[in-house]
């Protein structure tokens, strides 16, 4: 049982895109330069994957623990 609908996942994924693009810029303010866009996209791809897994799995674990 998914916690998030496909529409919700779509919107969350879309919201991560500008964050991934701006992330290297934000890092320059704390002195980390040369953090590449590719790395940033890979990072937020993992974040999205984590959200996806949470959405699909969390309920299953919860229900199995309860049984």
């Amino acid at each position: 049982m998914s916690r998030l609908s496909p529409a919700a996942l779509l919107l969350i994924g879309a919201a991560l895109v500008p964050i991934a693009i701006e992330f290297p810029v934000i890092l320059t303010f704390v002195g980390i330069r040369n953090f590449s866009f590719g790395l940033s996209f890979a990072l937020f791809g993992l974040v999205f994957l984590a959200i996806l897994v949470w959405s699909e799995v969390a309920d299953v674990i919860g229900s199995s623990a309860g049984s």
């Binding site: 693009i21 290297p24 810029v25 320059t28 330069r33 590449s36 866009f37 590719g38």
Partner: peptide, 10 residues
């Protein structure tokens, strides 16, 4: 920030 070629790809 980043490289010109990465900007072009984007």
């Amino acid at each position: 920030v980043g490289t010109i070629s990465s900007l072009r790809l984007q």
